[in-house]
Each structure stands twice: as structure tokens, then as C-alpha cells.
Write a protein that binds this DNA or RNA. Sequence first.
DNA 1: GTGATGACGGAAA
DNA 2: CTTTCCGCCATCA
Length: 85
Amino acid sequence: MLRRARAVPAGFVTTYGDLCPKAPRFAGAVMSNAGDGVPWHRVVRADGSLAVGERQRRRLEAEGVPFRGARVEMERAWVPAERLG
DNA sequence: GTGATGACGGAAA
DNA sequence: CTTTCCGCCATCA
């Protein structure tokens, strides 16, 4: 799970549901626990909205993640967890 | 063992 | 498109 999160390249994002389809909430809890060492900012909700806050958005924009209003353009930035490895 | 909660997701109105 | 409601599995009190 965390392995996938780490495999997400800069400029792209994945979703909690991708990392843990059976318990997406659990994925979030794990990320929080993981803290640093994982690009947690590249993990967003399935609809592209952010879960953490402004901090996350800044990081994503800095990496060139396309935004549409308050949400990420999943069509462009979403990389399915399956493709990570 | 039980009940409540959460960095979520999908369906319905 | 937005707002509501229920289900999911693991943790914690």
C-alpha cells in the first residue's frame, strides 16, 4: 500500500480507494501515521478534491499537477495504482 | 466483546 | 452540478 504511494511520480496523483479499495479510510489513517517519507500529498480523493488542506494543494501545484478550481484534474493527473507496479 | 470514529467511495435525490 | 445517506475495515476507548 505505502509502496504504491511512494511509487506515484511527481506531477501525478492517486486515490485512497486505489491504495486500499476495501478500506480507503484506513489508507488515509496509514498515511497520516506514515508522516514523512511518503508523498502523501500525491494522494487525493476519488473525485479529485483534497483531503488535507491548503498545504497539500501548494505541494501539488508546485509539482505541476493540473487543477480545476478546488479539485485536481483526475483525467490528466490520476495514475491508477495498478500502473505503479 | 461493544460502540464510536475516520486523510473515503458510491448511489440517490 | 451540489447535498445526503449508508457501507466499508481497522483502531481505539
